[in-house]
Write a protein that binds this DNA or RNA. Sequence first.
RNA 1: CGGGGCGUAGCGAAGCUUGGUAUCGCGUUCGGUUUGGGACCGAGAGGUCGUGGGUUCAAAUCCCGCCGCCCCGACCA
Length: 479
Amino acid sequence: MSNQPLPSPTQDFSAWYNDIVYRADLCDQSPVRGCIIIKPYGYEIWEGIKGALDMRFKATGHVNAYFPLFIPMSYLQREAQHVEGFSPELAIVTIGGGETLAEPLVVRPTSETIIGESFAKWIQSYRDLPLLMNQWANVVRWEMRTRPFLRTAEFLWQEGHTAHATHDEAEEETLQMLDVYADVAVNVAAIPVIKGLKAESEKFAGALRTYSIEAMMGDKKALQSGTSHNLGQNFAKAFNIQYLDRSNQLQHCWTTSWGLSTRMVGAVIMAHGDEKGLRLPPKLAPHQVVIVPIYKTDDEKSGVMAAVESIKKQLVSGNIRVWVDRREDLSPGFKYNDWEMRGVPVRLEVGPKDVANNVVMAARRDMGKEGKRSLPQENLAASVSALLDEIQANLLAQATAFRDANIFDVKTYDELKQVVEAGGFARGWYAGDSSDDKRIKNDTQATHRCFPLEQPGGGGECLLTGKQAEKLALFAKAY
RNA sequence: CGGGGCGUAGCGAAGCUUGGUAUCGCGUUCGGUUUGGGACCGAGAGGUCGUGGGUUCAAAUCCCGCCGCCCCGACCA
């Protein structure tokens, strides 16, 4: 809590973000470099994301399990690209119980290897397939530079791991889970995303193909918000994940993995926040409605609080998450600003005048003071529910309009450079390879985000090489 | 690991150039008045000045070493 204004998001997005995560009470600094303490208010947002995902995982036939935090070093080494991709950022335990370990244990950066080892044991026959599993876990990646929620040395996520009989089934699973991520991003977090295929230079170490959902943040930079990998038979071969098919032939499985992390909390902040603070989509807001009681005298207080209680009860029975701000000695004005900082979608003000007229004053976080209006106390749960739906839709509409206004079609490398310089996503026909991706990154700081799955068809001249290109690619500066 | 900056009360800062025993704002505690868009008055509590050494009668201040953090790059969900 503080009474100073936030840094302007348009002038210094980075400072704005840094301030908001602490002032909205989402997290605290930790004594360990690169880690954060996720505070209850921030954790509840994650729980919202988690619940939405878990429900969808179950609905698509997946079950949860839990694998060890420690992974034998030799496991990672079994898949060459995988260990190469992760070795710079591993935390490794070499001592246990005061003794030097015979084999160092890696603190998991991801669990393909240790889960692959189990899958090999559990899968014998085509009857065991598909195997559809997920785990909720923490992972550690020793990042050079960290930012709260967006990139921390330790983060929370889910990692799905599945095994299938054929390439096509694995591909179908990979794309299905990408759809689940997009569904949660769009319909729960109100963040429009672009589903796409990662270029070779950006794919997961050890994957056949990586897909991602890419979102645009308030500073027009891209944020990879969820990834889904078709691992081919790479891990199946490294870990002997095999099954006997219907004709009694031993076959390697086709595996997938997919993950979405607490980074999504950062996406919510950066996609929706404004100069007054956080703006939470109602479906994720820990408090969908906050009630601020207003009174001067004890008489007024008892009348107001009685009304507040009955309003609260009404809303709770309508399945609305309500919080009553009972703090004494804080002015209503202070509370308005405080809850605006914390992004609560709807604020209800209840004072003596409202009690007398059987109404409440309702303010929407997605609109300014002009959005304030009086609502009858009668049927309030229904009218507030409708309001929450409107806010959810409006946040998505605003973020979508912003994103669409900042994606630009480019035909030449110069045009791409101009777009990246000015801010935004550049989209154009592209036939470059990994070294071309690298060149673009060196020249412009923009990375090849993906080949969007939605393609217009046909083809065009590659913006960089001039070769015939079959796909449009997306380039942007990214987190 | 390169380039920049910073460590002084819970938070944010001033003081350092020119050494003299620590100041301000916010928060916090107590009392009172307030409360429909960031209230006010009064009285308190709270600091090994990141750390180790050196110079000096005297160090937050000057000198040397170390540690940590932040920002900008390279690396990444």
